[in-house]
Nucleic acid binder design. Sequence first.
DNA 1: ACCCACTGGGTACGCTGTACGCAAACGGCT
DNA 2: AGCCGTTTGCGTACAGCGTACCCAGTGGGT
Lengths: 243, 243
Amino acid sequence: MTDSDAGGRLTRDAIVSAAIDIADVEGFDALSMRKIADRLGVGAMSLYRHVSDKDALLMAMTEEIGARFPYPYGEHAADDPADDRAAVGGRSWRECVQVATDTDWDLYTRHPWVVLAYSSPRHSMGAASLHCLDWMMAGFSQLGVDRVGAAEMTLTLWSYIQGVALTAVSADLVRTTGPDQDPARGGLDEVLDGTPPVEPPPRIADLVGAGRDVGLTDMRRRLDRGVEMLCIGFEAVAREARG
Amino acid sequence: MTDSDAGGRLTRDAIVSAAIDIADVEGFDALSMRKIADRLGVGAMSLYRHVSDKDALLMAMTEEIGARFPYPYGEHAADDPADDRAAVGGRSWRECVQVATDTDWDLYTRHPWVVLAYSSPRHSMGAASLHCLDWMMAGFSQLGVDRVGAAEMTLTLWSYIQGVALTAVSADLVRTTGPDQDPARGGLDEVLDGTPPVEPPPRIADLVGAGRDVGLTDMRRRLDRGVEMLCIGFEAVAREARG
DNA sequence: ACCCACTGGGTACGCTGTACGCAAACGGCT
DNA sequence: AGCCGTTTGCGTACAGCGTACCCAGTGGGT
């Protein structure tokens, strides 16, 4: 395998890309060093020439994914970067929240394992995340809060998105060997379908047979409704902070 | 090992308790069937007489933990269970939210692995969780929303708590082999300490050296502040729903 | 021509979950 | 008492995991 065999060279990027593919398609716990090596037509131990550790690989995967789903910062790079309004491309703070929600949701549903990886500040909060935080802070600044307040709102929003995403993708994370039944089906679904697993408590009883179309189990809907309520809270807190 | 050897009998409860102990003390990924068996002075395969699967064991562990951290439902069992006010022991809806927040936070910080387990409706949403949902719905009913609205608020609150808890306990979940550095220390901490890892974006630059006492990295504080903002949103949505 | 750094491969170790079969003990029956 | 089906526990074995360690080949620099 010489240098002229350009495409065949084993590179760190190729390893990271293959790992991401496997984690997406086969699930996070199906990701093994041997499987990555097989896909690349290479011995398992060869990977360790380019990646020190499986943990380091996970960090590189997370970084790569973060770079693939950027917030639209820098789209007006020519303007003054310290100008909060210009930094978000003239969007209102509420529109910024929507962009962040859509982007993160897209990321988490396409790459479920990132929910776990992002939760650790050691794996997230690299340069890309700091830029996203900066962009969101620029948006929240329209509410008249100080930098700490804007950062707090961003982190609160992110935590909520992660919480909903965690529920949405949990089936992929704690994947059992034999999916003998619908893994997304829990006690609540059975209540809504009219077949409660046990004698339901009084208020739950009012929900029996309500059907799934009331939206209680639609994660994307729960996300949007929750973000809406959070934003109302943001506004109120900002109003109070302004005095 | 006869029946007279009462304490020595291998029981399902003993297995579940031992597993919970190990997961709490040594971390979730250090939990192995052999380790459980060793602690019980028993062969690994003996466990399978009482537990069909490791996944089934995880479900039993989750159920046990759920039972250990109940909401205070049923404390006035003599009253009419359909009476929403009585069901929550005369608490205001906001007090109910606080009880739920405190209880869940206590649960998640004491048993970090439950954050993962609870995220899947297959592992949570048993009878205990349905009772908790019922109790919270009784509380939210004070806002004048219907049952679906009360359930929606409960699930939204739970998602947010899980999101914050996920960040707080992530160090225990994606535990690396060699914790050569503080795993809870991320790029944001370095910014606040005044040692940013890279050239910080403009608004992040305003945070450099702000110190950790501004509360941005205090997870319990972030939880309470976020719950406060969510509750403001709950109130506004309820007001609108009432017309 | 020689050496050396770099890359990839192979073997091996200790760990995991668990399928399978066997031995001992128990409860209920005649 | 003697028997027998069922339960309980144990030991072996297998496939898969991350990765420590060492060897072979190849390219460039001297």
